[in-house]
């Protein structure tokens, strides 16, 4: 009954349901990430984006649903930041050694990919949030992942670094051949860097190319306020909730 993982798929989440303390966080969410594909999840605050990234990374187990991973899949996970301010006295260089020991060239190369080579000898507790973000991405890249999971990778980055990161991502993907599952709250910034977009608000509202999803009327309102976001969602999900019947005119696949 269960469909096997297609050969080019890195990870497949199928009908994931997640709730915490009676609160539903993810409802029947399914998605696939293929080799060398950059998939971006967008959605408002509280949409379950981070939870979805954590489910994909294997950090939380959903109540129901299946997660299929390609055999031997190596995941590089980039969290939003450190959960608390780091108390451990450790330099960036030694921090990079924690998952697997790197030699100096490997460490420097990884940092250089994020223009962060100048941080190499700084203590991790004394660098800024944006700099830490780059170190975390460098650490993930150094582990030579098949799938890179980026949770709001531009958090704490200034606009120039942010643009720079998204400009660099497709190149890095071409160079290392990984797939990317990326969380973002701003579709327009990641548009150029992404192959496919899933719009999430606890359930998958719509998906398609960034142009398609961006073109959907009222997309902006998803992020404006919860009230109108709700309306926009109804608008996106004509099959289930639409108060005004079948509106299948948008380009994106609605499911």
């Amino acid at each position: 009954m269960e469909q096997p993982l297609p050969p080019d798929t890195l990870i497949s989440l199928r009908a994931i349901c997640l709730s915490r303390e009676e609160q539903s966080i993810l409802e029947n969410v399914s998605l696939d990430v293929s080799r060398q594909e950059i998939l971006t999840i967008v959605g408002p605050n509280g949409a379950g984006k981070t939870s979805l990234a954590r489910v994909a990374a294997g950090l939380i187990r959903p109540q129901s649903g299946k997660i299929l991973r390609a055999p031997g899949l190596k995941i590089g996970y980039v969290p939003q930041d450190f959960p608390t301010d780091p108390t451990v006295p450790i330099s960036v260089r030694r921090f990079l050694d924690l998952p697997h020991r790197l030699n100096d060239t490997e460490a420097l190369t990884a940092l250089d990919l994020m223009s962060a080579a100048y941080l190499i000898n700084k203590p991790i507790s004394r660098i800024s949030g944006g700099e830490r973000q780059r170190v975390l991405i460098a650490m993930a890249l150094a582990s030579k992942p098949d799938l890179l999971i980026l949770d709001e990778p531009s958090k704490g980055l200034d606009p120039i670094s942010e643009n720079d990161l998204y400009a660099r991502l497709p190149d890095l993907r071409d160079r290392f051949g990984f797939g990317v599952l990326m969380i973002s709250h701003d579709l327009h910034v990641v548009m150029a860097a992404t192959d496919r977009v899933i719009c999430l608000n606890r359930h998958v509202c719509c998906q398609g190319t960034p142009q398609d999803v961006g073109a959907i009327a009222n997309f902006q309102t998803l992020f404006a306020d919860p009230e109108s976001a709700h309306l926009a969602l109804y608008h996106h999900r004509p099959h289930q909730h639409a108060p005004h019947g079948g509106d299948d005119s948008n380009h994106a696949n609605v499911d």
Binding site: L59, P79, P83, I90, H100
Partner: peptide, 17 residues
């Protein structure tokens, strides 16, 4: 030691690794 330090510094990263 190294693994405990990693877990202490960043539990999620340690778990994913």
């Amino acid at each position: 030691w190294r693994r405990l330090v990693f877990l202490t510094l960043h539990r999620d990263l340690a778990r994913v690794s």
